[in-house]
Design a protein around this nucleic acid. Structure first.
Length: 831
RNA sequence: GCCGGAGUGGCGGAAUUGGCAGACGCGCACGACUCAAAAUCGUGUUCCUACGGGAAUGAGGGUUCGAUUCCCUCCUUCGGCACCA
């Protein structure tokens, strides 16, 4: 080796190994039934054109764990692809005229290169790109299967529309208390449009079950809150005949979670948009009602949604009959009742609902208490100062008087249970469940997405495009104009086709699909991205599915992660996939913030570019630092100085392995200590990999390296223990820093490749200590430490502790009241 | 308002889930090497201290021989939902 430069040059050696791994197809995964399989999936990126440090933060620890699982003996599938349809490419096209297809595929090319610089074990043979016709053919086909299963339907309704993106959005894609578009932050508006939906609500109850899957509690909670199941009753109210409406409109249904307060319902409130409002409004109230409706329509959802806003409303002149006590109660309209929840009409119980109370006070409507608070006398509606929402007993409620009321929801509340039974017997109402969750609106009025493969004929209506005509391909020659209509609609010829039923003239659907549809099944396309007889090869499915570990950001909790669960269940019921859940284990990484602690953004100028870091330090150092600098699930601000620690660690390992001092003068004790530390570290690192605790993997390895430097100093560098130490050390490093591990593995003369080596086994005997140091506390404060042999009895430990001079000093001659030996690890003397 | 996460040195974080608080690293200080600097190596680094000790894991209380860890009350902060009937 004389004359050769033996310094650590990551730029050279990383490229060298990346090329060799690729040439050797080291990371190709194929079905191998002799091994247990492990499908490790990490969320695929959108091809924005540049790999962000956030991508590295998400992907490299996932890669390290996939590598670890491979060394543990699993046949690991770790694929990568691109979620390539979507608005940014199309918006850029509007701006500069570059075709989204061209831009997208250029970006993908660039990002593939950047990803290769990570040294990740992606199997590129399985790459899937959602914007490629061979992919979206099957996105279309899957849409048709859902349509055939009755899970896709077209409906005219008031939907959320982003005026900046010029398209409708699904409810999940409207965010926050100011109801903004998830993509661009513009407040959405409502529009009445004919759109395609998936019947996701059919699965609401099943989506609330997380049995058998290991997902973070946070995600389960977010999804549960999003679906927001609420138990209550539907109750029928008759509309008073004197209101002058015909009999078929004489009934109105309301949903309530508090049927036990029915006797206190003293008025009804309809949403201003409720279709019945027009029919029931009396001539003398017509003008006021029309004016109020117009005013409500002008207001945005945000203005209407402000909870602290003063209640407003107008009387319709109509009355309803409270079915439990025949009371004739006025019907009002008010914008605090939303058409989009429940039935768009409520029974108002001002005595026991804060909103109804405020409304009743303002418009001087009657307030009738029907719950007597515990330990208090009955309230008087006329003098009440606030709605009462606590526990008590039912009063003013006929034969149900005296029934206990608590604050539980549903049948757990005795009063609600009693009323539900009573309503059922009388045929007035029935137990009912309501959800906030809505069906998934998938139509988008944009070009750059998978076409919805449906055709409309004047005679035969909507029909799916026949399988042999799939995919419905996107035309390339379109005009980019943000008109609010799909560019496909403006294309002169594309939409004209023939009816699959009668062959007569017909028109294609010109909206495209929500890109979340493409990403709901990409994990299936990875299985066989070139397969052309179906969305995936069943043999690959049977071997690899379900996904064993899924990693990605938590921001998708109520979007992608909910859509893909729904989609899997829908495909299961259509007989296309098996099992109830697509992803068994989910782990979320946190976010890397800018050095200023703010979210990284180009406008703030705090973006960290991984390419620059790779050029400067090498991919291994970047990988190690990413895994080290924060708890993975938490994330943290980036620290440009901090990376020096990871760089030094790697250099010191390089020095340790390449520049040994082969002495064998170490004492038996030194050698034994070295082995102990190695196997203790191995145990810890193994456990940490299992638990996704990446930061402590690196710190354990650093600590071990420091010990090894000491052992070398003590003359261990030529011993058998040293050789074992180096081998195990490199294997533990391999998943984290694959290039340097491979290089040093080769340099110590071991056979290629370290990445196909088995994970070392812990020698439990070697980890055992000969003697242990036990802290001795007096009244909970450590005063001394005594060393006892392993396996010493409690009495021996006690005796050793009491024999300590320092301890005796603090006892001040007093007799200990109690001596506690905690698990043989600590002594506490109480005086 | 409701639901969930987080709060530990100058900084990122550790602590076998009730048993030595601050591992590992950054930064900083001092030293070695050097004419010098960088790099590298070594030592130290929670705070206060009358050098005996004392205090400290967002604040206050509780349980316990013992609490960063469990319980109660509150504060700060991040995220989600929200006139949801």
């Amino acid at each position: 080796m004389r004359g050769q430069d033996r310094s650590y040059q990551p730029q050279v050696l990383e490229k060298k190994w990346q090329n060799k791994w690729e040439a050797d197809q080291l990371y190709r995964s194929v079905i191998d039934k002799s091994k247990p399989k492990h499908y490790a999936l990490t969320m695929l990126p959108y091809p924005s054109g540049d790999l962000h440090i956030g991508h590295w933060y998400a992907m490299t620890p996932s890669d390290a764990r996939a590598r670890y699982m491979r060394m543990k003996g699993y046949n690991v599938l770790f694929p990568m692809g691109f979620d390539a349809f979507g608005l940014p490419a199309e918006n850029a096209a509007i701006k500069d005229g570059i075709h989204p297809m061209k831009r997208t595929f250029q970006n993908i090319e660039r990002m593939r290169k950047q990803m290769r610089s990570m040294g990740a074990m992606f199997d590129w043979e399985r790459e899937a790109v959602s914007a490629a016709p061979e992919y979206y053919k099957w996105t279309e086909w899957l849409f048709i299967q859902l349509y055939k299963a009755g899970l896709a339907y077209r409906k005219m309704s008031a939907v959320d529309w982003c005026p900046s993106c010029n398209t409708t959005l699904a409810r999940e894609q409207v965010k926050g208390d100011d109801r903004v578009c998830d993509r661009c932050g513009t407040p959405v508006i409502k529009k009445d449009l004919d759109q395609w939906f998936f019947k996701a609500t059919k699965y609401a109850d099943e989506l609330l079950k997380f049995d058998g899957i290991d997902w973070p509690q946070t995600v389960k909670t977010l999804q549960t809150n999003w679906i927001d199941r609420s138990e209550g009753a539907e109750v029928q109210f008759k509309i008073d005949r004197e209101s002058g409406i015909d009999s078929q409109d004489s009934q109105i249904t309301v949903f309530t979670t508090r049927p036990d307060t029915l006797w206190g319902a003293t008025f009804m409130v309809f949403s201003p948009e409720h279709p019945l409002v027009e029919k029931i409004t009396t001539p003398e109230n017509k003008a006021a009602v029309e004016e109020y409706k117009a005013q409500a329509a002008r207001q945005t959802e945000i203005q209407r949604g402000a909870a602290d806003k003063e209640k407003t409303g107008v009387f319709t002149g109509a009355y309803a009959i409270n079915p439990v006590n025949e009371a004739r109660i006025p019907i009002w309209i008010a914008d605090y009742v939303m058409m989009s929840y429940g039935t768009g009409a409520i029974m108002a119980v001002p005595a026991h609902d804060e909103r109804d109370f405020a409304f009743a006070k303002k418009y001087e409507l009657p307030i009738v208490p029907v719950i007597q608070p515990e330990g208090q006398s009955e309230a008087d509606g006329a003098t009440m100062e606030a709605a009462f929402v606590g526990s008590g007993v039912m009063v003013n409620s006929g034969m149900l008087n005296g029934t206990k009321v608590n604050t539980e929801k549903g049948r757990k509340n005795p009063s609600i249970a009693a009323v539900l039974d009573w309503l059922g017997d009388k045929g007035i109402g029935k137990e009912s469940v309501n959800y906030r969750y809505r069906d998934w609106l998938i139509s988008r009025q944009r070009y750059w997405g998978a076409p919805i493969p449906m055709v409309n004929c004047e005679i035969h209506g909507w029909n799916p495009v026949p399988d042999d005509q799939l995919p419905v391909e996107l035309p390339e020659d379109v005009e980019w104009r943000p008109t609010g209509e799909s560019p496909l609609k403006l294309h002169p010829t594309w939409k004209h086709t023939t009816c699959p039923v009668c062959n007569g003239p017909a028109v294609r659907e010109t909206d495209t699909m929500d890109t979340f549809m493409c990403s709901s099944w990409y994990h299936l396309r990875y299985l066989s991205p070139k397969y052309d007889k179906g969305p995936f090869d069943p043999a690959e499915y049977d071997y690899w599915m379900p996904v064993d570990t899924y990693t990605g950001g938590i921001e998708h909790a109520t979007m992608h992660l909910l859509y893909t669960r729904f989609f899997h269940k829908a495909l299961r019921d259509a007989g296309i996939v098996k099992g109830d859940e697509p992803m068994m284990q989910l782990r979320n990484q946190g976010m890397v913030l800018g050095e200023d602690g703010d979210k990284m953004s180009k406008s703030k100028g705090n973006v960290i570019a991984p390419d620059v870091l790779v050029n400067k330090y090498g991919a291994d150092s970047v990988r190690a630092y990413i895994m080290f600098f924060a708890r993975w699930e938490m994330g943290a601000p980036w620290d440009s100085q901090g990376i020096e620690g990871a760089v030094r660690w790697i250099k010191r390992v390089w020095t340790l392995v390449t520049d040994p001092t082969p002495t064998t003068t170490a004492s038996e004790g030194t050698k034994k200590n070295l082995r102990r530390k190695i196997h203790q570290t191995l145990r810890k690192v193994t456990r940490d990999f299992d638990n996704f605790e990446f930061n402590t993997i690196i710190s354990s390895l650093m600590e071990l390296m420091n010990e090894m430097y000491k052992a070398r100093e003590a003359g261990a560098a030529g011993t058998a223990e040293w050789k074992e130490a180096i081998e195990i050390y490199l294997k533990m490093m391999a998943p984290v820093t694959p290039h340097i591990a491979e290089e040093l593995w080769a340099q110590i003369g071991k056979p290629y490749s370290i990445h196909t080596q088995p994970w070392p086994a812990v020698d439990e005997d070697a980890t055992k200590e000969d003697s242990i140091e036990i802290p001795v506390q007096v009244n909970g404060k450590v005063r001394d430490r005594v060393t006892v042999p392993v396996g010493a009895s409690e009495d021996e430990i006690k005796a050793a502790a009491l024999a300590s001079e320092a301890v005796q000093k603090f006892l001040e001659g007093k007799e200990p009241r109690k001596v506690i030996v905690a698990n043989g690890r600590l002594v506490n003397i109480v005086v």
